[in-house]
Design a binder for these strands. Structure first.
Lengths: 343, 343
DNA sequence: AACCTTTGCGCCACCCTTTGCACAATTTTT
DNA sequence: AAAAATTGTGCAAAGGGTGGCGCAAAGGTT
C-alpha cells in the first residue's frame, strides 16, 4: 500500500499560507513574491512533493495521456513505431497508453472504450487485419476525441492519417527487379481491404504495365504474409508449368519463407530466382543471401503520427478537412535481387 | 477539443435522483432497487456515459495504472515481454504506461519520476545497461510503491524480481556444444554488472569445469552484444594461434555477426565451428544455417512479473521479504550446433 | 396498535488542484 | 494627504465520483 504522499495542502499548512498560494508558487505564477516562492520550492523539495496529476487533470479537464491501438506490439514494425510515438509524446509532456487489438475487431472496439474512459486526449490507431467496420471509430469522433490513423487505415473513410506510400514501395521493388532483368515476377499479397497490401500490389502491377508485361493471375498469391504463407506460396509458384523468375513479397516474413523453399529446391538466389521483401525487418540482413527490402521508416512514422495528433489537439475547432501525411519508402538493395543489370 | 461528456451529475439530474444513487446504481451496489438501477443503466447507455476515471481514481486514491520502464521497446525481447505485461495487466483492469530508458541511467531516473506523478500503482523495471546506482529506486521504495524487476536486475539489492535462470541457460548451451563434441568453446559476454550476462558466463564456465576443460581468458570476449561486436569478436578469436571450434554467444545478435564472419572466411558451420546464441530471436531460424539458441519465454516473463506485482499490490503490509521468481530457459537446437553426437 | 427491521435513497464531506474574485497592504500618482 | 494602482495572498467553488451516515417509508412482529 502506497504511503500517502505530501499534497499541496500539507505544504500550505506547514508554511502557514493558503493552498492557492502554494499552487501558484509551484506553477510559477507571476503574482507571488519571490520569497514565498522560494520557501514553497524548498519545502516541496524537502518533502519530495509530486503533484497529483489525477487531481490536476480532473480540474483542468486534461489527462496528459495519449492512447495507442496497435494490432500487436511484438515484431519489428509496430514496436519501432511505438518507440517513435513514445519519444514524440513524452517530449510534449504526454504519457502513452498502449493497447493491442490482437488483429481482432472486437478487441479493437473494447480497446477504444478502455482508452476513452482512461480519459486520453487523443488516439492513434493502426487498424487490425480483421477490421471491416468503422462504427467503433465513429464513437470516438462523436466525442470529438482527436484521432489519427497510421500505416493501416480503412479506406473510404475520411480520416487523419499518416501512411506509407505503399504503392510507390511496391512499384520501386518491382521496378528494381525489372531493372535487374527479371521478367516473370510473382507477388505475395495480403488481405485486400487493408490499404497497405492493396497498394503494394497496385504498385507491382503499375511497374509491370510500364514494362508492357502481362499481369498474371496465377502469379499473385494472397495469404496472411507469415513465413509459412511464403513457403506455401513459393511451392505453389514452383509447381506452375512456367514458374516465375522473381518474387516481390509484400512482407519480409513470407519472403523468408520463400527463401527457405528455394534453398530446399536447390534454386540459387538471385541467379535463378530474384527476391524482394517488404518492411526491412532486422533479419533481412541476416539471411543468406540477404534480402532486398523496402524500408518503412517505422520510427519516423510514429513520430509523425504523434505530431499530427498533437497539432490536431492544439486546434480549437474540430477540423472538417482530414489531413494525410504520406511517407516515402526506401529501397534497400541486397544480394537476393542483385544479379547484375541486364535490362 | 473534446466535447464535454455526460457525467454522473447529468444522469442524476435527468432522472431526478441524487448523484450517489446513480453512482451506486452503476457500481452495482446492493442497496439500490432494481427499478432504479435499470432506469439508470438505460439512461447511461443512451447518453453513452463513460465514468471519468480521473475523478474516480482521485477519490479512491487509485489510478488503475501500472508503469513499465524498459531499456527500449524495439527488438524482440522487450516487445514480447511488454506484450505479456499488457495482457496480464489489462486482464486485471489496469492500464500500462510504458517508458524507455534508452539504456541510460539518467533517463531511467526521470522515467521513474514521470511514472510516480502519473500516479501509477505499481512499477515494473528492467534496468538499463548503464545503471550502476540504486538511489532512484530507493525513492520508489520510500513511497511504498510496489516495485518488481524483471530480467535485468541490480544484484546485491533485495528486490522483487522475475528473472531467467541465465546460469542454467549458459550451462545448457555450453553443455550442448560439449555433447556435440566441441572442446574449444569460446564465449561472448556483456557488461558484467548485469546479472544476465554474468550468469550466462558462469553457466558457461560451470559446464567447462564439469568436463574438466580449462577456462581460457582469451576465449571470453566482452562487448555490447550487438551484431558488430559479434563480428569483431569472431575475427579476434580466429586470429588466435589456436582458435576455438565453437562459440556460445550471450546474444543472438553477436552470434549472427559471428556467423557472417565465419561465412566470409569459408569456415563451415557447424562442421568447422559450432555456434549457439541466446534469446531465440525471430531471425535465428532465418539465418543459414539456423542458429541454435536459448529461449527466454519473454511473454511468460512479462505475465509472471505483472502477476507478482499485482500480488504485492494486493497485500496490505509492505513485505520485507522480497520475492524472486526464476524461469527456466529452453534450448532450441538448430543446425548451427548439430554436427552429430561425438562426445 | 405500537414497535422494530429492512429497504432505498439523499445529504454531505472528501480526494487534490486550479482559478476567478475579493481584499488588504504597500507603493505610486496627482 | 487623498486617490489610484500595484502587489501578494486568501477564500471558495469547481471538476466527477465515492461512501459513511442518517432518514423516511414499507413491511414484519408481538
Amino acid at each position: 500500500m502506497a504511503k500517502k504522499r505530501a499534497s499541496i495542502t500539507d505544504l500550505a499548512r506547514q508554511l502557514n499560507v493558503s493552498v492557492s498560494t502554494v499552487s501558484r508558487a509551484l506553477s510559477g505564477h507571476s503574482a507571488i513574491s519571490e520569497a514565498t516562492a522560494k520557501r514553497v520550492a524548498a519545502l516541496a523539495k524537502e518533502l519530495g512533493y509530486q503533484p497529483n496529476s489525477l487531481a490536476s487533470g480532473l480540474r483542468k479537464g486534461r489527462s496528459n495521456m495519449l492512447g495507442v491501438v496497435v494490432p500487436h506490439i511484438d515484431g519489428n514494425f509496430f514496436s519501432q513505431v511505438v518507440k517513435g510515438i513514445e519519444a514524440a509524446a513524452s517530449k510534449a509532456g504526454y504519457h502513452v497508453l498502449i493497447c493491442q487489438s490482437n488483429e481482432n475487431q472486437a478487441h479493437e472496439r473494447t480497446n477504444l472504450d478502455t482508452l476513452m474512459n482512461a480519459q486520453v486526449e487523443g488516439i492513434l490507431v493502426s487498424v487490425s487485419r480483421t477490421t471491416r467496420e468503422f462504427k467503433h471509430f465513429e464513437k470516438i469522433r462523436k466525442r470529438d476525441i482527436p484521432l489519427v490513423f497510421f500505416d493501416r487505415i480503412l479506406e473510404d473513410h475520411d480520416v487523419n492519417a499518416v501512411v506509407l506510400d505503399d504503392r510507390a514501395g511496391g512499384y520501386r521493388a518491382t521496378r528494381h527487379l525489372l531493372e535487374q532483368g527479371y521478367r516473370r515476377i510473382a507477388h505475395f499479397s495480403g488481405p485486400q481491404q487493408l490499404n497497405i497490401y492493396k497498394h503494394r500490389r497496385q504498385g507491382y502491377e503499375d511497374a509491370l504495365r510500364e514494362y508492357n508485361l502481362p499481369i498474371r493471375e496465377e502469379f499473385i498469391i494472397f495469404g496472411e504474409m507469415k513465413m509459412d504463407d511464403g513457403s506455401a506460396g513459393m511451392r505453389q509458384l514452383l509447381a506452375l508449368p512456367e514458374p516465375p523468375d522473381a518474387v516481390f513479397s509484400g512482407s519480409d516474413f513470407s519472403a523468408a519463407g520463400a527463401l527457405e523453399v528455394l534453398g530446399e529446391r536447390g534454386l540459387r538466389v538471385p541467379q535463378d530466382v530474384g527476391l524482394v521483401g517488404f518492411s526491412n525487418e532486422l533479419f533481412s540482413r541476416l539471411t543468406v543471401p540477404q534480402i532486398t527490402s523496402i524500408d518503412q521508416h517505422c520510427e519516423l512514422m510514429g513520430r509523425t503520427a504523434t505530431r499530427l495528433l498533437l497539432e490536431i489537439m492544439a486546434e480549437r475547432e474540430p477540423d472538417f478537412a482530414p489531413r494525410h501525411v504520406v511517407l516515402q519508402p526506401d529501397l534497400f538493395t541486397r544480394a537476393s535481387s542483385l544479379r547484375g543489370a541486364v535490362s
